[in-house]
């Protein structure tokens, strides 16, 4: 497997935001690579730039310099539609805030991205729901679910299209410790089953220990 085929590769990525007191460097020459089936936990203090790194990895933003390669495709070279296609087809995101689509029920939410990507597999989806303990909730709407249930729906949605890359941003940050642990276990298990790469952003070193590899981001520099 060459580097260009890696699910995710960052090469000397820098990103600067306009702050109230002038330019605010968030990432300074960050490089990392993530192969299929690998899990990387990215830790760092609040404001260390880890959310920005995740957004770059998701093609939600573009770097100022350096390259973000997803399955070998440089997202900076793509237009909005191209990046949207990458998001749709190559990767999946699990947010801290779950970010379910409020107007769709659980089943529709889970199937949504898979169907957008044209890779809807009803059996796989059903299994995901089963594994995540959501089979009874399929017809419910997100607003009536508990936080843990919502995050499990988000994980199911992320994994439903069998993405090569799963990005998770504090996926258990809104959950209590027990629930969080159970949800994380399930996610790691299912990611492994799917042989996907996982970038897990968290500030908790306890959670980070569960990942295959760890990286620490401090003041925009990877340690």
């Amino acid at each position: 497997m060459t580097e260009t085929d890696l699910p995710l590769a960052l090469e000397s990525v820098t990103k600067t935001f306009a702050g109230p007191d002038g330019p605010l460097p968030v990432l300074s020459g960050v490089s990392l690579a993530l192969g299929a089936g690998e899990t990387l936990a990215l830790t760092g203090e609040s404001g260390s730039g880890k959310s920005t790194l995740l957004h770059l990895a998701a093609g939600l933003e573009t770097p100022d310099s350096g390259a973000v390669l997803i399955d070998g495709a440089d997202i900076a070279a793509l237009d909005d539609a191209g990046r949207a296609a990458i998001r749709r087809e190559r990767l999946a995101i699990v947010f801290q805030q779950f970010n379910l689509i409020p107007s769709l029920d659980v089943a529709a939410n889970v199937a949504f991205q898979a169907r957008l990507a044209g890779r809807h597999d009803p059996d796989w989806t059903a299994r995901l729901l089963e594994r995540l303990g959501l089979a009874d909730q399929a017809r419910k709407y997100p607003e009536v679910l508990s936080g843990g249930q919502q995050q499990r729906v988000a994980i199911a949605r992320a994994l439903a299209p069998r993405p090569g890359l799963v990005l998770a941003d504090e996926p258990t940050g809104n959950l209590d410790e027990d629930t969080g642990d159970r949800v994380l276990d399930l996610m790691l298990e299912l990611v492994a089953e799917a042989n996907a790469a996982l970038l897990l952003v968290t500030h908790s070193s306890r959670l980070a220990e569960r990942a295959g590899a760890r990286a620490h981001l401090s003041h925009g520099v990877l340690a």
Binding site: A81, A84, A85, R87, R88, N99, L100, I101, L116, A117
Partner: peptide, 16 residues
């Protein structure tokens, strides 16, 4: 926005 942002994140352009 909260309703649209996830859809955008899931792979739809803002124009669309």
């Amino acid at each position: 926005l909260p309703g649209l942002a996830p859809v955008w994140a899931l792979g739809l352009t803002r124009a669309r």
